[in-house]
């Protein structure tokens, strides 16, 4: 399937990626080719076939609600590009 430039821009926005015109064109061409290849799957009859999202049977894993040691706030913050003594700092969200 061929996708349009507008679609590429829309997907990029959903993906929180900024593309210039050149990149948009390259991705349009490459994504179209990959999607054309993926169209192959339409040859397969999947009527009444259950989807497999995970190969092993997944069950809820429960545990007791106990307080256990965890990483400290300081350690959790240390990798952040901008933080105060207690919080991650981000640009102002509410005007």
């Amino acid at each position: 399937m061929k996708i349009t430039k507008e679609q590429v821009k829309h997907i990029a926005l959903l993906s929180r990626l900024e593309l210039d015109e050149g990149e948009t064109e390259i991705y349009q061409e490459q994504l179209s080719r990959i999607l054309e290849y993926v169209e192959k799957l339409n040859e397969v009859d999947t009527k009444d076939i259950e989807p497999t999202s995970h190969v092993i049977e997944l069950n809820n894993v429960f545990r007791e609600d106990e307080v256990k040691a965890s990483i400290s706030r300081d350690e959790a913050l240390r990798n952040a590009p901008d933080y105060t003594d207690k919080f991650f700092r981000v640009p102002k969200i509410i005007e």
Binding site: N42, V44, T46, I49, E50, P51, T52, S53
Partner: peptide
């Protein structure tokens, strides 16, 4: 979803 079904196959 189609891909997940083919995964089953």
């Amino acid at each position: 979803k189609k891909a997940l079904q083919v995964r089953t196959l």
